[in-house]
Each structure stands twice: as structure tokens, then as C-alpha cells.
């Protein structure tokens, strides 16, 4: 069966979401058409439009926000001597859930990967350098992903901060908390050993 044009367009829009395949997109689209009231559809359209007009990147840290600057950059009670550098805004949400870090953040909006056409100039790096001119900042904590791209990015930032007097650290990787050593695979274990600390 062929769907009406508008339904087909909606289906294609849903397919743009990560993890949504053809079948799921079809279900969402049909659900929208058959189960939602006109008010509900207006509500959804309204939320999408508000995202376009109200949400933007914080000019200081790059985090998504609806106020300038974002609630973290604005918060005077935060420790302004530390910056955690992450790849995406969603990483901040995870970090904030820890409830144990009270410093600042910086969102790179990507990671360096020449094979994906992303160089150092294509991520939000120059604004980080600009922020680091502030003497108050003593430590940069590199929390990019532990993938090859994340590692390239972290190493790159470390290199350009050499001699700046800023203390550069990298999040550790290894055995998950509460895990038993005997169940860790050999690769994880050797990474954990590499990153061992004085005790």
C-alpha cells in the first residue's frame, strides 16, 4: 500500500532520529495520524517551533541553553578554577547527575576525525582557548570519549596547552565500579593497569 504524501513525509522525518528504522517510523507516523487530537498535534508543532526560537548554544561554554549565559556559566557559586571539556551537551547532563563536581564545562560539539572531515578548526576549540586566557582557570579536565577520536582530541588539547601553566588531566578508564576483576576482558584490564595511580 502507498501512503498519502503528507504521511510519507512525516514517516521520513521520524527516520532522521537515531535508532528509528522504517518500521518504527511507520508506527509513529500512523500513531500521529490516527491517535492524536488536533490539540496534541498543535502542541507538538509548538514545541518544535520553540526549539527553533528559544534554544541556542551558550556563547561561553557551547552548552545548549535558553538563557544567555547558560545556568552553569551564570552560577557564581560554581568553582571557576576547573573546566571539564566534553564532546556533546548530553555529556554535561550525565556529569551533573554525579552531583559531586561543581566546576565549569566546555562543549566541543564533536571530536577531531580527519576521516569524517573534522579538523581542530571544526570543533568549538578556539572559544576554549579564549576562556583559558582567564587566570582564574587552573585545571582542564579532558572528558572526551575514550574512542580513538576522543583520544585524538584530548591529546591535541593537551599539546596546545603545553607550557600554559594550566594543569591538564584526563578522565581514567578501566574496570567499572563494583565489577569483579576476573570478569574484566583483557583489553579493559590492561587499560586499567596503564591508568593505575599511587595508593
Amino acid at each position: 500500500m502507498k501512503y498519502p504524501r503528507a504521511l510519507d513525509d512525516l514517516l521520513e522525518s521520524f527516520r532522521k532520529y537515531p535508532g528509528v528504522g522504517k518500521k518504527t517510523a511507520e508506527r509513529y507516523a500512523l500513531h500521529t495520524v490516527t491517535k492524536f487530537s488536533e490539540e496534541e498535534i498543535d502542541e507538538i508543532i509548538g514545541s518544535f517551533q520553540r526549539i527553533k526560537t528559544e534554544i541556542f548554544d551558550c556563547p561561553i561554554c557551547g552548552n545548549i541553553t535558553d538563557q544567555n549565559p547558560c545556568y552553569i556559566c551564570k552560577d557564581d557559586s560554581r568553582d571557576k578554577s576547573k573546566i571539564i571539556v566534553v564532546e556533546e551537551s548530553k555529556d554535561i547532563i550525565v556529569m551533573e547527575k554525579m552531583n559531586s563536581y561543581h566546576g565549569l564545562y566546555h562543549v566541543l560539539k564533536g571530536a577531531i576525525s580527519p576521516s569524517n572531515g573534522v579538523g581542530p578548526e571544526d570543533i568549538n576549540l578556539s572559544s576554549l582557548m579564549e576562556r583559558l586566557k582567564d587566570d582564574k582557570i587552573k585545571e582542564v579536565i579532558l572528558a572526551t570519549n575514550l574512542s580513538n577520536e576522543g583520544e585524538t582530541t584530548a591529546l591535541y588539547i593537551r599539546r596546545i596547552l603545553e607550557g600554559s601553566g594550566i594543569f591538564v588531566t584526563r578522565i581514567a578508564h578501566g574496570i567499572p565500579a563494583g565489577a569483579n576483576i576476573e570478569y574484566a576482558d583483557e583489553v579493559t584490564l590492561s587499560k586499567a593497569l596503564e591508568g593505575r595511580r599511587e595508593f
Binding site: P114, G117, G119, P120, L155, Y156, R159
Partner: peptide
């Protein structure tokens, strides 16, 4: 990644040797 970087460096006037090094 390295080979892609090398190819992209061919066209650039100012070459990022830091990234190549890393």
C-alpha cells in the same frame, strides 16, 4: 585517519603538524 589527514594537508597552506604528530 592519518591517511585522510595527509591528503587534507596536501591542499592547505598552513599545515597542522601538531595533529599529524598526535
Amino acid at each position: 585517519e592519518r591517511n585522510n589527514l595527509l591528503k587534507s594537508m596536501q591542499q592547505k597552506q598552513v599545515k597542522d603538524f601538531i595533529l599529524l604528530d598526535i
